[in-house]
């Protein structure tokens, strides 16, 4: 049996979606990064224009976890259709080094509020300089304002163990908070 599960990483440009997927994927991640030509040049060399994709294979059978990276902005919301079926969790990445960190999270929550209420979500603050408490509280306020209660934690997207810990929290939410909610898909 081919069990397929999906997890999506969402966030503004530069929040670490590509890096998270690269640190978990067992297949070479597929990326649609291109060199920046606009204001983003000041932030980073490349940016994702469509989506990132990676995969984890489950031991023992043909089960697969598909990892997607999607922009969080509302203008890309049509891309969410690609991942909606079989989605069982979302990791919302917040770039602590960005002045617009909260605005990006707020836009994502506003755009995908209904979808995010139906699945486990974790807010992960990336690129923190170690003083992310205030930003964490701001994230919680945003969640609260959108009627969501979700864990907020910090990670360094380059460190696999950090990404795995976020994953562990997501799985805990799935197992104990969504134990009677139907999600996922068997292909």
């Amino acid at each position: 049996m081919n069990e397929i599960y999906k997890i999506v990483f969402m966030g503004a440009p530069g929040s670490g979606k590509t890096t998270c997927i690269a640190s978990l994927s067992e297949v070479p991640p597929i990326s649609t990064d291109v060199p920046c030509t606009d204001d983003l040049m000041a932030m980073k060399d490349t940016t994702t224009v469509a989506l990132d994709y990676g995969e984890l294979r489950l031991d023992g059978d043909n089960g697969r976890l598909l990892l997607y990276g999607l922009p969080g902005q509302s203008r890309f919301s049509y891309m969410f259709e690609v991942v909606r079926t079989g989605l069982f969790g979302a990791i919302l990445l917040v770039d602590a080094s960005s002045e617009d960190a909260i605005d990006g999270l707020s836009e994502t929550l506003e755009t995908y509020r209904d979808d995010l209420k139906a699945i486990p979500i974790v807010v992960a603050i990336n690129k923190s300089d170690g003083s992310s408490h205030a930003l964490g509280l701001r994230c919680q306020q945003e969640l609260h304002a959108h009627g969501l209660v979700a864990p907020v934690m910090t990670l360094d997207a380059r460190r696999r163990e950090d990404v795995v810990q976020v994953f562990e929290v997501l799985l805990t939410l799935l197992e104990f908070g969504f134990d009677h909610v139907k999600m996922g898909r068997t292909a």
Partner: peptide, 24 residues
Amino acid sequence: VAAGSSLKQKWSALASRFLEKFGL
């Protein structure tokens, strides 16, 4: 309480498999 439901068992098994995979 829906403890022991097939869905709960499914998520528990899935979580266990992933956590094992990550060495947890």
